[in-house]
Simulated scan of single mutants.
Amino acid sequence: MIQSKNISYSYSKKKSLFKDLTFQQNEGSIVGLLGKNGAGKSTLLNLISGLLRPKKGDIEVNGYVPFKRNPNFLSDIYLVTDELFLPSLTINAYMQAFVPLYKNFDIEKMRAIMLEFELDEKDKLNKLSHGQQKKFIIAFALATNCKILLLDEPTNGLDIPSKRVFRKILVSSIEENQLVIISTHQVKDIETIIDRIVVLEQGHIVFEKDITQITEKIQFKKVSSILSFSNVLYHEKCPEGYNVMLPVENDEETGIDIELLFNAITNKTEIIF
C-alpha cells in the first residue's frame, strides 16, 4: 500500500529531515509511528498523503504518486491532522458537502460513531470545543472507509472517557483491507490497539517490529528490586520499584509497555531479535 524508497526531504537547504528513507507498510495493520519532537513523523504523513513532495526518491501509495493528487487517490486516503480548521457549518451541512468525495463513505457508521461520541448533526463545527471537533473528524475519517487512514496525534484534546471510546471505535471500525498509521506522543493511549511499532529518530527508522515479535522476545514487568536480576535489558525507577525489560524465558509473555520500550530504544539499548 505504501512503498517509499530512498526519499529525502528538507525544509531548508542547510539540514535534511529525511535522507534516503525507505518506508513500506501493507494493509491489515494499525501502526504506531513514534518519535521525539522534530523526528519527522508529521512530515512523513504529509508526504504519504501528498501534501508534500519528496526532494529525492520515490513514493507510491495505493498505486499512485501522492503529490499528483489524483482524485481516485484522494478518495481512498484520509489524514487527520493535530491542528483542525473546520468551517462554520453544521455537521449535517459538512457531511452533505464532503461525503460525496469518498466513494466508500458509510453514513450509518458515521451516525453510530457520532452517537458514541455524543455529537449531534445540528452541532455547528466552529462552536465545538477542540476535543469535540477532534471527535467529529475522527468519526468522519473512520466512516470514509479509506484504505489508508493517517492519524496525527488523534487523542490530543480528548478527555479520558473519550480516549477509551476512541480505542473501542477504532478497533471495531477497521477492516482487514485497511492500513492505519497513528503518529503520537501519547503512547499509553494506543498501546492496546496497535499491531506494529515504527520509531523515527533523526530522519531514520531505528526500530520496526510487530507487537507479537516484541512480546515473544521481551517481558515487561514491575519489580521491587533489580538486584536479583542479571539479565535486565533496560529499567526505569518508578514509585513501586522499577519498570524493567527482560528477555522472555520459559515462553512467559507479558503485556507491552510502549513508553518503556520507546525510552529504551532512544537510549540506544541493544535489543536482539
Rank of each mutant, 00 (worst) to 15 (best):
V99F: 07
I174V: 15
L233D: 09
S49L: 06
P239S: 12
I91D: 00
L45V: 08
N243I: 08
V244N: 08
L101A: 14
Q132I: 04
G50P: 01
D189L: 08
C146I: 00
I197H: 05
V180K: 07
L74Q: 11
N156V: 14
T269P: 02
F207V: 02
S10M: 12
G131Q: 02
K13Q: 15
D20T: 07
L45H: 03
Y102V: 04
M110D: 05
I194T: 06
I256Q: 07
N250I: 13
L179R: 05
P71S: 11
E116Y: 07
A139I: 07
N72K: 15
V80F: 02
S42M: 07
A39Q: 06
K168V: 12
E216L: 13
V99C: 07
N145Y: 01
F18I: 05
I138P: 01
E253P: 01
L260K: 07
E27R: 13
S4I: 12
L79D: 02
Y11C: 07
E236Q: 14
P247T: 06
L51R: 15
G255C: 09
A93H: 05
S12I: 08
Y234P: 11
I182N: 03
K103V: 04
S173A: 14
L246S: 03
V206M: 03
D82M: 04
E236D: 02
E27I: 13
G38F: 04
I211T: 11
I256N: 04
T184M: 06
N6R: 13
E118S: 10
S10C: 11
V80Y: 03
S183P: 07
E108T: 14
G28H: 09
F67H: 14
F73H: 03
F73N: 04
S49P: 06
E60F: 11
D159F: 05
F220N: 03
L149F: 08
P154M: 10
S29V: 06
K217V: 09
D123G: 03
G40Y: 00
F18M: 06
V99N: 12
V65I: 15
K103E: 14
V199W: 01
L142C: 06
L233R: 14
I182P: 00
L44E: 01
V31I: 10
V232W: 13
D123V: 06
K168P: 10
C238Q: 14
